[in-house]
Design a protein around this nucleic acid. Structure first.
Length: 420
DNA sequence: TAGGCCATCTGGTCCT
DNA sequence: AGGACCAGATGGCCTA
């Protein structure tokens, strides 16, 4: 089969005949690489031997992260930083694992002596042998490097996994993933901070909204500093509704085909804001799509049967649910024109919490996550008491993770469905 | 077809 | 010596 001698692939004394001789596929696609990611044939000699260490690449459309065939479920919940730190990739690399319980050397054991009086016989190696040794070392190094990059890609997939993107979105590239993650974390933290300012009275809730003109100047794929974010989220009150039910937008940079940044469709409107497209659906759904990801807020009426959840939205939203708010807050909640308010804060927070909790639950729990909404009137003060996921189903805001419909996930955990 | 993205190979460097 | 890490080179795949 090999058409050559065993020694061609085995050093004389060393470990090249060990686990990582190069014949074994060291990286099994065990984690976030459900299908082969290999696009380049491996060059070393295993190809010649008819052995490919890398599976054939299946047709894979880039930027399709959560495709139907992508049914892999991450086995290791990333519950918190500690857990994530504890995560160890499967030991399928070529790197030999050092045993912790190393046998202590017996001091009484005599050292081995060789014929010439030295501790070890130095054997002459022919140029051919040296070549083979070098070749094997190179193969081992390649194998390690491959594994290293695979683990790096797995980490990136884990990162994509917690970012809010739709399955129909194209898969984020590596650099997009990192940039998006940076801004996503920043946005979430700033959202929390803004709400704290609202609660403490430092910031009137009616003055908290997006300044889209400023947002234009800070593309979401780029780094946004804290001051810039505050500019966006805490504008002055000059940005008022146009009176036609839609907020007034100006200064957009990426016009639609009609030359405008504002596009009326039978289902609603689309607005371009720099790298971000905001769609407002007549039925109440709002979708924010950027070049690096999508956040989705939609009305239950806009859901299709394929989401198995129509009948979950049978409770009418009432501002009364926020019975601990003062009238100003309640008014703002009822205002569909408010983009950043208590309710949206809840969306962000619950999306975040849901994502976290999803990761810490097992598969079976994903199959039944559409519990009916109760009439529980929770107070705002309850919002930090999220002890478990069941709490969400008692909220008059309904959150779920569409990725976990059935046995396979379809949606990213931070995609939020909410009554609006 | 050009360009972007990616996986892999490769040699160098640093560290144990 | 060998492993980890890095960056450059290369070639394949995909899309506009």
């Amino acid at each position: 089969m090999f058409g050559t001698d065993f020694e061609d692939y085995c050093d004389f004394n060393d470990s090249i005949c060990s686990n990582d001789s190069g014949f074994e596929k060291s990286h099994t696609d065990s984690l976030a690489t459900p299908i082969s990611v290999t696009s380049t044939p491996i060059k070393h000699d295993t190809i010649d031997l008819g052995i490919s260490m890398t599976p054939n690449k299946e047709s894979h459309v880039r930027r399709k992260l959560f495709t139907d065939e992508y049914t892999y479920r991450f086995p290791t919940p990333v519950e918190d930083v500690k857990v994530f730190e504890d995560f160890q990739p499967l030991n399928n690399t070529s790197t030999p694992v050092k045993l912790k319980d190393k046998k202590p050397k017996d001091p009484n054991k005599p050292k081995r002596k060789y014929a010439n009086g030295k501790n070890r016989v130095s054997r002459c190696k022919s140029p051919t042998q040296i070549l083979r040794i070098k070749k094997n070392r190179r193969m081992k190094a390649n194998d390690r490097e491959r594994n290293r990059m695979h683990m790096l890609n797995e980490a990136l997939d884990r990162l994509r996994y917690v970012l809010p993107t739709f399955p129909e979105d194209t898969k984020l590239t590596k650099i997009e993933t990192l940039r998006f993650a940076h801004n996503y974390i920043f946005a979430l933290s700033q959202t929390l901070e803004s709400l704290d300012n609202i609660n403490s009275g430092q910031l009137p809730v009616e003055e908290v909204s997006f300044n889209y003109e400023k947002l234009e100047n800070y593309p979401i794929a780029e780094k946004v500093n804290k001051d810039a974010f505050r500019d966006i989220f805490v504008p002055n009150k000059s940005d008022e509704s146009s009176g036609d039910g839609y907020r007034s937008f100006q200064g957009f940079s990426k016009p639609f085909a009609n030359g405008s940044n504002f596009l009326q469709t039978p289902e609603g409107v689309l607005i371009n804001v720099g790298n971000v497209t905001v769609s407002v659906n007549n039925k109440g759904g709002n979708c924010i799509t950027s070049t690096t990801g999508t956040g989705f807020f939609t009305h239950p009426a806009s859901f299709g049967d394929d989401m198995f959840q129509k009948n979950c939205y049978n409770e009418t939203y009432t501002a009364n649910s926020y019975n601990n708010f003062d009238s100003t807050v309640q008014n703002s909640i009822q205002s569909s024109k408010e983009y950043f308010n208590q309710k949206n804060y809840e969306l962000f927070k619950n999306a975040f919490e849901t994502a976290k909790n999803r990761r810490s639950t097992n598969t079976s729990e994903y199959t039944c996550n559409y519990s009916p909404i109760s009439n529980h009137n929770y107070s705002y003060n309850d919002k930090y008491n999220y002890g478990n996921e069941a709490f969400y189903s008692q909220s008059n805001l309904y959150y779920n993770d569409q990725r976990y419909v059935g046995r396979d996930f379809y949606r990213s955990p931070s995609v939020v469905n909410a009554q609006t």
